[in-house]
């Protein structure tokens, strides 16, 4: 019995910590897809840039990790606005194939730019003392960093939920995701709304990139490609534009992925795809997505 509890704690703690990371990075992608029908495959590149900004602030400059995360969030959010105004806006009204080609091109550019500037080797950071070591839960000890991920992720989830459900801009976003043309007719400036959401989503991705360095085994230039599939899966399973759905999808997939690899190291990594397959057969629009209008 003790052993069962022990393993269950492991799966839950590590799975949820990973799920939080998936959610933080994917949520921006989900909303931009739901809001504008825009397929931003370069979303992972923003996460990667955020990770590099964090690393470079912490290691050579000696800025505290948590502060570096905040700076990365703001810097990449601002960078997102610039990119959106300068580049993305030109392809919004084009067909989806153009979105895909344009953003995958951006991924290639980002990978080569990052390799060129910082080299192909993985980047690591030394965590602050308070985030190192173990936390004794009674049942078993878990790494402090995982606990921190869960708490920080939980706080971000609650803030987002609150923001979307209770604020004016949240209501506007929900309305625009539901029916963009109707929302526009009611005077909601969807263009500007999109800029704000795009910035927020990019910033969140950057935050995820910074938080994930320790969990994903170092930060590499291939990050933008390596995890793209996972982010897209989370968004598809959750339902486009649905924050709650993205959260539950991240939770289900994060836990299943960890459990799969833990129990069946050989082939456990494929569980996540099997689950995605079944869920999408059952609900092609995703767990919380609306059926095709």
């Amino acid at each position: 019995m003790d052993q069962v509890l022990d393993i269950a704690t492991t799966i839950l703690v590590f799975g949820v910590a990973y799920a939080m990371l998936l959610f933080i990075i994917s949520v921006g992608l989900s909303i931009t897809m739901g809001l504008m029908g825009f397929v931003n495959l370069a979303h992972g590149a923003f996460a990667m840039v955020g990770g590099y900004v964090t690393v470079k602030l912490v290691t050579p400059l000696g800025i505290p990790y948590l502060l570096a995360l905040v700076i990365a969030f703001m810097a990449v959010a601002a960078f997102g606005v610039v990119m959106e105004r300068l580049l993305y806006r030109w392809v919004f009204d084009r067909p989806e194939l153009d979105h895909v080609l344009f953003t995958i091109g951006l991924v290639f550019i980002s990978v080569f730019a990052v390799t060129g500037i910082w080299g192909p080797d993985p980047q690591n950071i030394q965590l602050p003392k308070i985030l190192q070591g173990d936390l004794n839960l009674g049942v078993k000890s878990i790494p402090v960093y995982r606990a921190f991920m869960i708490i920080a992720g939980g706080a971000i989830v609650l803030t987002l939920f609150y923001g979307l459900e209770r604020t004016r801009i949240g209501a506007q976003v929900r309305a625009a995701v539901d029916n963009r043309r109707m929302a526009e007719s009611c005077g909601i400036p969807t263009g500007r709304l999109f800029t704000v959401i795009f910035a927020l989503g990019s910033g969140m991705a950057a935050l995820g990139g910074g938080l994930g360095i320790q969990i994903l085994g170092g930060l590499k230039p291939v990050f933008a490609f390596e995890y793209l599939v996972i982010f897209l899966i989370v968004v598809a399973v959750g339902g486009l534009g649905n924050v709650r759905g993205t959260f539950y999808a991240a939770l289900v997939l994060g836990i299943i992925d960890f459990a799969g690899k833990y129990f069946l190291p050989e082939g456990g990594g494929f569980f996540i795809y099997g689950v995605t397959f079944i869920i999408l057969l059952w609900r092609p629009q995703g767990l919380f997505g609306k059926a095709q209008r």
Partner: peptide, 17 residues
């Protein structure tokens, strides 16, 4: 077995096991 040689995986599930 801990994933393939191309990209370094997240080793946590394996090491925790």
């Amino acid at each position: 077995p801990m994933g393939g040689p191309r990209n370094a995986p997240d080793f946590t599930p394996f090491f925790q096991r």
